[in-house]
Nucleic acid binder design. Structure first.
Length: 861
RNA sequence: GGGUGCUUAGCUCAGUGGUAGAGCGCUUCGUUUACACCGAAGAUGUCGGGGGUUCGAAACCCUCAGCGCCCA
């Protein structure tokens, strides 16, 4: 410890003055940099890579705070910690941003051409991307910046090619013509989870197909696709249509004959029980069409505009066509019934909200069945633990029912699919070290962004090379993220991680947290106008205050509400610690020299050390279980209630007295403060560092040792003594309050039956030694306090106070008595419970006696 | 439609069988040499409704109602 580091603390706490310099100090010292050659056990977290287009929102602030808490604690526990930062190239999102900029100049990406467009995106990334990185520094993230990665980096791209080839060789990647989700605005395929369903108002019409010979009425919400119908389907057991199965029926508007087929998929209860089969434009219809060998004409282009139907509707937008088709049918007298609005689930593009169009097209898929089985098993057999475990069923539900994953995207920004086609339709898949044969052309599509982020835990560490980082830090330790990306990202990492690593999971624990919502628990959204800006909060209250508020609200896997004044509350807590430390320093608190022998301490010192040790144990246990809210709660109440409100107050007399007792208190207080600042450091790194360094003269808390519980520093009886002191103080204060005695006023009083700690009590309650005759007394347990109020006692107030106490005591006594009179209770309740109730009965009985006597002794008013 | 969760103080939430808790808010008083971003004292709950199990239920079971989320 060097005296030189000790600093005087400013009279008021100003977060802005300390935070930026401290972060710079940590960077300069290289505390966050992991050492792959270290002998310490590794502890690794990879950050959920934020989109390169993104900026820090309140959800990141929560996610990062929790990760930082874990990583900082582990660092203090002596692990070789690596928290690896980076960003995701975010295919669609980023392409959209750059295209929008081009559009402002009246250009499209096609004007630039693929190569030029990609250059433009990289340029955009260099100039405007990654704003979030600077904001992460603001928050205090102890990430290793020397290992920052980007999913489009060369190394990560090699990992993408490598795994694509391995999956292809294992026949787990295939190309096929399937019906996929298509965004007519982004002009790309989407995977199932990139489609968000909402209940929208549509229309439901019943249309009579056929002519005077055979007719059947079908029900549909998508009349415009009827030009692409290949059949009409009914349920095989439906008696209404039994005779029609196998017959041909006229398709109106296009005047084509189509068959009536029977398929179990048809719900006889839905509409008329007869549905149109449009294989190229509906996923269910596609299944039926495949089963029955039905034609699947494509009558819409990639923009969602009608095309090649051979009707007058060609060239109309799909929604415009829907109306026109129904109008035309109505004219022809073919509309049997219409319902509008008809509310039903409609899919929307996650990125741009455009209504998704099912589209038949050639795409690349991952065959997920064997991979998903392994991913489910890894959690089932405990190789991966999901915290909280209540969320595991959701994981199973999804992973056990996962459809094949469409991984090709018709975009330019992303990892181009490493497949090359020869002049005669040859297909060659190239790994990172392969060269495609001359004259072959590469597949123009790119891969789903989540394909590359699914490799994140190992691609960032150098895989497929066996780098030092990979050997030291892989598999990673725990994954901390929001449950909202459990399917998008977490499940994919498990899937791909197990595949490349022969069943070894990419992490052993998935710690899921919830979403940050507004003060009323409502989801934050731009349309609601209830979003908040974490940067603004950090400016106003400090990063520590924001972090502590978020961590304190973070119960595992559940959403949390956030209101600005709660952050103010955390700032108040920081100020409290600031002032408590100033007070401690003022009174000479120190960490120098041996801590006095525990057994020789008085009750107050034993008590605070006992409470400290209990707090250390609780905080450590909670943090190891990702119970951030409970851990913060423990620290908060220990620091504010036990330390500030009680220990500091009860110790003032000791400090004032000087001598040996003061020396002991100084050393104990120094120890407690040192330890509590260490406990606080992961959650509130800035203020804890500032206070600890200035108080102890030490270099840093970042690499300081994490407190360890020590049962030899506990004494139960001291807790009982201090509890009694607290009761006494509370009752004296209450008496003073009820009697209208100013807090600052000194009152003459004496104690009867009090053992030790009289000086501390007198200090806290502002009582002077009484020489006169007592004018009033109160009884607290076995202790009597006699006051000299020189006859000025407020009898009315005193009677009210005692009457209230009497009522409480009588109620408690009755409760206890009823229990003890209950034969069932006496026969079946455990001994210790019965004993506890007996003690309660005795205590309340004594209280009633004493209060009654006091009431009787009061003069009449 | 299938899952799943929730309903505890004015608000947001802890609390998995033994006298109901926290933060914020509220009322009153108060500048006592750490702190008014503070201190002290105080008020506020048939723990969603009904039924059951149990000596004992906010907690376990059943049921009804309301709200939410995920998936289709």
């Amino acid at each position: 410890m060097s005296q030189a580091n000790k600093r005087e603390l400013a009279a008021t706490f100003s977060p802005a003055d300390i935070e930026a310099p401290l972060y710079q100090k940590w960077l300069d010292a290289g505390y966050f940099k992991a050492d792959a050659t270290s002998d310490k056990p590794p502890f690794t977290i990879v950050i959920p890579p934020p989109n390169v287009t993104g900026s820090l929102h309140i959800g990141h602030a929560l996610d990062h705070t929790l990760q930082d808490i874990v990583i900082r604690m582990k660092r203090m526990k002596g692990f070789e910690t690596l928290w690896l930062p980076g960003m995701d190239h975010a295919g669609i999102a980023t392409q959209n941003v750059v295209e929008k900029q081009l559009a402002a100049q009246g250009k499209s990406r096609h004007d630039l051409g693929r190569e030029e467009f990609i250059k433009t995106v990289w340029k955009w990334k260099a100039e405007s991307g990654g704003a979030i990185l600077a904001q992460m520094k603001r928050l205090g993230d102890s990430v290793d910046w020397s290992r920052e990665r980007f999913t489009m980096d060369e190394g990560l791209s090699k990992a993408v090619q490598e795994i694509f080839k391995r999956l292809y060789d294992a026949e787990l990647i295939y190309r096929a013509e399937r019906i996929i989700n298509w965004c007519p605005r982004c002009l790309t395929a989407l995977s199932d989870i990139e489609v968000e369903h909402s209940d929208d108002a549509g229309e439901f019409v019943q249309v009579r197909y056929g002519d005077e010979n055979i007719s059947i009425t079908v029900a549909t919400t998508r009349a415009e696709t009827m030009m692409g119908d290949g059949a009409v389907a009914v349920h095989p057991e439906d008696p209404r249509y039994k005779d029609l199965i196998g017959k041909m029926v006229l398709l109106p508007l296009v005047n084509r004959m189509i068959p009536i087929i029977a398929d179990e998929l048809v719900d006889p209860e839905f509409g008329t029980g007869a549905v149109k089969v449009t294989g190229a434009h509906d996923p269910n219809d596609f299944e039926m069409a495949m089963r029955h060998g039905i034609d699947m004409p494509i009558i819409m282009n990639e923009h969602g505009v009608m095309a090649n139907s051979g009707t007058k509707f060609d060239g109309m937008d799909r929604f415009e066509a829907r109306k026109a088709v129904v109008d035309e049918l109505r004219l022809q007298g073919r509309i049997v019934a219409e319902k509008r609005p008809y509310v039903h689930a409609v899919g929307h593009c996650q990125r741009c909200d455009t209504t998704v169009e099912p589209r038949l097209s050639m795409q690349w898929f991952v065959k997920v069945a064997p991979l998903a089985k392994a991913a489910g098993d890894a959690v089932r057999d405990g190789r991966i633990k999901i915290e909280p475990e209540e969320l595991a069923p959701r994981y199973f539900d999804w992973i056990d029912n996962m459809h094949d994953w469409c991984i090709s995207r018709q975009l330019w920004w992303g990892h181009q699919i490493p497949v090359y086609y020869g002049p005669n339709g040859e297909v060659v898949v190239c790994g990172p070290n392969d060269t495609p044969p001359a004259g072959y052309t590469q597949d123009p599509d790119v891969l789903d962004t989540w394909f590359s982020s699914g490799l994140w835990p190992f691609s960032t560490l150098g895989w497929p090379e066996a780098t030092d980082d990979y050997k030291k830090f892989y598999p990673t330790s725990v994954l901390v993220t929001g449950y909202d990306i459990l399917f998008f990202w977490v499940a994919r990492m498990v899937l791909l991680g197990l595949f490349v690593n022969d069943g070894i999971a990419p992490f052993h624990t998935i710690a899921l947290h919830g979403l940050v919502r507004d003060r009323f628990g409502k989801k934050m959204s731009k349309s609601r106008g209830n979003t908040v800006d974490p940067i603004e909060f950090m400016d106003k209250y400090g990063s520590d205050a924001l972090r502590f508020t978020l961590a304190r609200g973070a119960n595992p896997g559940t959403d949390q509400a956030l209101a600005e004044e709660w952050i103010g509350g955390s700032r108040n807590f920081a100020t409290k610690l600031w002032n408590a430390t100033r007070f401690a320093v003022l009174n000479g608190a120190t960490i120098e020299g041996e801590l006095p022998a525990f057994d020789g301490l008085d009750d107050i010192n034993k008590w605070i050390l006992t409470r400290l040790d209990e707090t250390i144990e609780a905080v450590d246990n909670y943090l190891e279980k990702f119970e951030f809210a409970k851990a913060c709660e423990e620290i908060y109440h220990f620091a504010w209630d036990d330390l500030c409100d009680w220990y500091l107050e009860l110790s003032k007399a000791s400090f004032a007295s000087g001598g040996e007792s003061a020396e002991v208190s100084k050393r104990v207080l120094g120890h407690v403060l040192d330890q509590v600042l260490r406990l606080l450091h992961p959650a509130m790194p800035f203020i804890s560092e500032e206070l600890w360094c200035s108080f102890t003269g030490g270099e840093t808390l970042v690499t300081a040792t994490w407190p360890k519980s020590n049962f030899a520093m506990r004494d139960e009886s001291s807790k009982a003594v201090v509890t009694q002191l607290q009761d006494l103080v509370t009752e004296i204060r209450r008496f003073r309050n009820d009697q209208g005695i100013k807090t600052s006023a000194k009152v003459n009083a004496n104690f009867v039956g009090l053992g030790a700690h009289e000086a501390a009590l007198r200090q806290v309650c502002r009582l002077e030694v009484m020489t006169g005759v007592p004018g009033a007394k109160i009884e607290v347990g076995k202790v009597i306090v006699e006051f000299d109020l020189t006859g000025a006692i407020d009898v009315k107030a005193e009677r009210a106070r005692l009457t209230k106490d009497l009522a409480t005591a009588e109620k408690d006594r009755t409760t206890a008595k009823v229990k003890l009179d209950n034969e069932g209770f006496m026969a079946k309740a455990p001994m210790e419970v019965v004993q506890e109730i007996r003690t309660r009965l005795a205590q309340t009985t004594a209280d009633i006696e004493s209060i009654t006597a006091q009431l009787a002794a009061l003069p009449n008013d």
